[in-house]
């Protein structure tokens, strides 16, 4: 088979800081794809009865999973707001460089605020409270 045409390799591009935004969107997306596995395992355990559920929550309340849970929450907050920014771009809104830079800062700020609120609810008041 003939080799297919390829776009230039990414490393030829000068680094621009909008790249951080896209790369983070990708990392948080894939991270949540892994998180989805855990979410479904948790649901299946809940469907399996009280004993299966107790075993699973014991694992999920370990320190490792608490850290992972916090990371998934943070990933969700960023991916949510940056995803909305992507959807706005698709409507051809906010493409200008100044606007893109400004909306990136807004995404990061909104993500951090939402993360702080959700983490407080979950770890200080909610079901993962000590």
């Amino acid at each position: 088979m003939r080799p297919r045409p390829m776009s230039p390799h990414a490393s030829v591009y000068r680094f621009q800081y909008t790249m951080i935004g896209s790369l983070t969107h990708r990392m948080t997306g894939v991270g949540m794809s892994v998180g989805l596995l855990v979410l479904v395992a948790w649901l299946a355990a809940a469907a399996g009865g009280a004993d299966a559920y107790a075993g699973t929550t014991a694992v999920l309340s370990s320190l490792v999973f608490k850290v992972l849970l916090a990371l998934w929450l943070l990933a969700f907050c960023y991916h949510l707001f940056n995803g909305i920014r992507h959807l706005a771009w698709d409507l051809i809104y906010g493409f200008e460089r100044r606007e893109a830079r400004r909306s990136f800062r807004m995404v990061v700020a909104a993500a951090l605020i939402l993360f702080a609120a959700l983490a407080w609810l979950l770890f200080c008041r909610g079901g993962a409270a000590p």
Partner: peptide, 10 residues
């Protein structure tokens, strides 16, 4: 989910 008692199966 952040407001539910996650350890409580019922």
């Amino acid at each position: 989910i952040v407001r539910l008692p996650l350890a409580d199966h019922a």
